[in-house]
Design a binder for these strands. Structure first.
Lengths: 212, 212
DNA sequence: CGAGCTTGGCTAATGAGGTTAGCTTCCTGG
DNA sequence: CCAGGAAGCTAACCTCATTAGCCAAGCTCG
């Protein structure tokens, strides 16, 4: 029996590919094992179990998303940055329909890479909002509003929640335009010098104590 | 053996209660049967299976949500109506953490009550937006933005996605204030006479052809 | 009243998926 | 070269969903 030569990274990466193909809810250890050409219990040499695989997938997907958001916003400011980031967000969700839902899982405090990925994602959003002069509590509120709108839209879209023929792209752009207008008038906007940068938003992606 | 006296309605209602207690993802035919004091296969006399139960639960929850949204908006207009409806939406999601996720399932075209519930829910949102002078495509865009923001917020909140100490109620109210401001300046706002009322929004809650 | 049918319960059996235990074999470091 | 850890495997068991088929409760109607 030649060995398959797996390790945790190859397993998690294949899980991500499989999830994109069959859907996050249909990601199963059995299907993953057969895709990797090993027996199901062999996977336990690389991941602790189904839940741990989900968590690692979440870390991977969150890191990817954070990178794409950061890249999209780089070199842009204000409405430009917002639109670019919003497009990147929806784009990621559509290109990776199986990974995207994994990004909504709360980071595991015991997995530093996962925690850092969440912080990078929120950090990218914070950075865009700083372009509107937002910081501190106002930026937290704005971040929540932005994440809510983007996540809500892409998850409704993915779930088939938009039935009417009206162009979905147009609706998205209109929503983002509304967000841009709101942030320009947001409490605290364009009142610089109210808060520092640095680890802005650290901890906001997750709420570890809410785990059950 | 005395009979348990179940019927579809009692089964679905108990499923709703159970889902609220243990979580939508933990709703299982086995747990439901034991809660109802019958053997698992007995449930098949009342529901076709696990998926059909989810669908019926979705119909129930969507109808409840539609009623609460409609009630909240009744007798109010503009920003008042928007705020009341937004509060009702979040309130429902928090009081019924197990039913709420079920409302995101696409209505089953074969279940008229389910379809009607979805139409009532979107209709309530449309009615509020009419108070901003919105109709037609502009109202569709605005409905999508509103649903996205509300759904995104409550699902991030339920998932523990808000980690920082900043008051979540305050963030929600700020987001709703932003939506109010956006709708007042929305394309088409306060330009009446552009579209009719009636079955406005019918079909928007669902996208049956997207089912797989 | 009671014969019989419909119905709502049951047990048994099957199958998918996850998990654990414990065995074997590859292959690398000393 | 060979010892031991790592990476496979099979077997066994658990939970849950589903289907088949049996049986009795209790209603309907002669």
């Amino acid at each position: 029996m030649p060995r398959a030569g797996l390790n945790q990274q190859t397993v998690v990466r294949e899980a991500a590919r499989l999830a994109d193909e069959v859907g996050y809810g249909q990601l199963t250890l059995a299907a993953l094992a057969s895709r990797l050409g090993v027996a199901l219990p062999s996977l336990y040499k690389h991941v602790r179990g189904a839940d741990a695989l989900s968590q690692k997938l979440s870390a991977l997907a969150t890191a990817e998303l954070a990178t794409e958001l950061t890249t999209a916003a780089a070199g842009r400011a204000g409405g430009d940055a917002l639109r670019a980031m919003a497009d990147a967000y929806r784009d990621y969700a559509r290109r990776h329909p199986g990974r995207y839902p994994a990004t909504q899982r709360v980071p595991d405090p015991a997995d530093p890479e996962h925690v850092v990925a969440g912080e990078r994602a929120v950090g990218a959003i914070f950075a865009v909002l700083r372009g509107y002069g937002l910081s501190g509590d106002d930026a937290v509120d704005a971040t929540r509003a932005l994440r809510s709108a983007l996540h809500g839209f892409v998850s409704l879209e993915a779930g088939g929640g938009f039935g009417l023929p009206r162009d979905v792209d147009r609706s998205y752009h209109q929503m983002v335009a509304g967000l841009d207008a709101s942030f320009r008038r947001w409490p605290g906007a364009d009142q610089p010098g109210r808060g520092g940068a640095g680890l802005a938003g650290a901890g906001e992606w997750s709420y570890p104590s809410a785990r059950d």
